[in-house]
Amino acid sequence: MNRLTLENVVIKYGDITVINDVSLRVDSGEMIFITGANGSGKSTLTKTIAGLLPISSGKITRAEKISYVPQIEEADRNFPAKVREIVLTGTQRKGKLFYSKHDKELAKRFTNALGIDGLVDSEIKTLSGGQLRRVYLARALCGEPELLLLDEPCAGLDAESHEILFKVLCEILSKGCAILMVTHDDLDLTGIKANRVIRIEGGKIHE
């Protein structure tokens, strides 16, 4: 099943074109790595697919349930909140205001899976960078996405967390989720086989 289609998409910041006439099709169960030099437009592309940036022309057709883990979370580090509540927000969707029992089970499952179950009652300001990263990953996974967008999810994660993450990702891939992952890592080390690797260069994608 189709999860994402880009048709001749152009993305600009003001007059500067970052993504120039790109087309792409992603189906369920596919794992796609996006690579490219710093500043090539990887984050711009994922942010746009997540619905946070407008496109100048072209067309994007996306699955309904998307979860996104940004490269840098633009949120107040001292915000008064506990891990549990942040993770649960990942289950919110348009028109869905309250958490069900199922949502709470999902939160429990993914905090366990990512090894942060001991931290659920901690305030987020007390977490380390890598721990917070795992909180955001758990939050995204809780949304039971049909399309998961990960912008350098491994930055700041130790080797053990990598392994744990990829185990979880394999599991959701087998259930039909499509994953788009921005990564700089040496592709052999990531421990998961990408169906496709895409390199962004000069505003175009190369497979």
Partner: peptide
């Protein structure tokens, strides 16, 4: 809570 914490994230979930 979600929007106060991170409005962009809320938007990425499809929330108005």
């Amino acid at each position: 809570f979600l929007i106060t914490y991170n409005e962009d994230y809320a938007r990425s979930l499809g929330i108005n």
